[in-house]
Design a protein around this nucleic acid. Sequence first.
DNA 1: TTCGTCATGTAATGGGTTACATGATTAC
DNA 2: GTAATCATGTAACCCATTACATGACGAA
Lengths: 197, 197
Amino acid sequence: MRQTDRSSAAAPAARVLDFAVLGLLHESPLHGYELRKQLNASLGSLRAFSYGSLYPCLRRLQGEGLITVDDSAAASKLSGRSKVVYTLTAEGKEHFTALLGEGGPSSWEDDSFGVHMRFFAQTDAATRLRILEGRRSRVEEKREGLRAGLSRTRERLDSYTLKLQEHGLESVEHEVRWLTELIDSERSHLTTTPPKD
Amino acid sequence: MRQTDRSSAAAPAARVLDFAVLGLLHESPLHGYELRKQLNASLGSLRAFSYGSLYPCLRRLQGEGLITVDDSAAASKLSGRSKVVYTLTAEGKEHFTALLGEGGPSSWEDDSFGVHMRFFAQTDAATRLRILEGRRSRVEEKREGLRAGLSRTRERLDSYTLKLQEHGLESVEHEVRWLTELIDSERSHLTTTPPKD
DNA sequence: TTCGTCATGTAATGGGTTACATGATTAC
DNA sequence: GTAATCATGTAACCCATTACATGACGAA
């Protein structure tokens, strides 16, 4: 047993924070502090990042040429504070769009799906559908795993563990229903407004 | 803004894995491989640990004198494989019971609440109640945060982000309801079988 | 004899937080 | 003038994963 057999996809983790930062900067230039606020507000319950990861991340992205410091914004000392305003470069834009359209397994993971969805408005219906369906499969797998485990061990579990597991299962089932609604609505979108039919 | 103001509780993190291992060994002696299976089975959807964290953890706990290698089990080569069977020491038992009964904020965190609940059968009703109520407050706080954020930004959000946030809110609300049920049932337990009244 | 599973471990790496250090600006 | 918030950053640490290395046992 290879410990976790999540296929041998060599994808380099596709850092969630990178993606999120790129996505926000794709909407408008921002400085670090504001970026973090937006980030934690819009990701809400899903995730919260600290400066200790944000600032190094910005530096890294800058090093990779995906973002630049917007000198014009920094220079105009209208409100004199020393802000470092970042903008997406052309490569940054390209990179982000690529990541967004990719819709591979990395966008289905628990921690990145929400972030991807946050930027759904910037994709096309087909990609959204692909991601939503991928996510649903993932969650359905999880559900099946839980169900199997539960029916296997139900008798041996004390009432608390049982309730815990059942609640977990319910949550997952709820997510599946939610995803299905989204998928249906997305599908009707597609058929009423066909992309190239 | 001190970044995250989770009070200045100096509690040394109360490592979840440690607690879980202690708890499982409190039920019966086990060797590493089996421990991991039990762990990932009973924590189910909540968490999954790898050997890379489990074995060092066992070593550490052993160093702290909380667990020992059960030589009798290792010596009896009935099924000759070289297993290293661990047992709780007296201090280990004490430590675990203390942690279990403590029911402080650390048992309300997302990642440790489930683990604590897994071992509820080994506590008293009062402690269970305390932990459940603590957890509920925590989740209610989260709910309020989400509601506030949502009502503040509802207009500015695109439909996808909105749906995402709303689903997050629903999940949290669902957990609150669930916890309330558990609390009520635990309360009636207490009143029908008073501990010292 | 080879494959799957049982079984134990280590080294490198990763992605993040905490706590700290610093200072400007705004509101009271 | 002082408290809160805005703003940027760094260094030390933490907890865990991944990938690797090793080997015994049972079944086909």
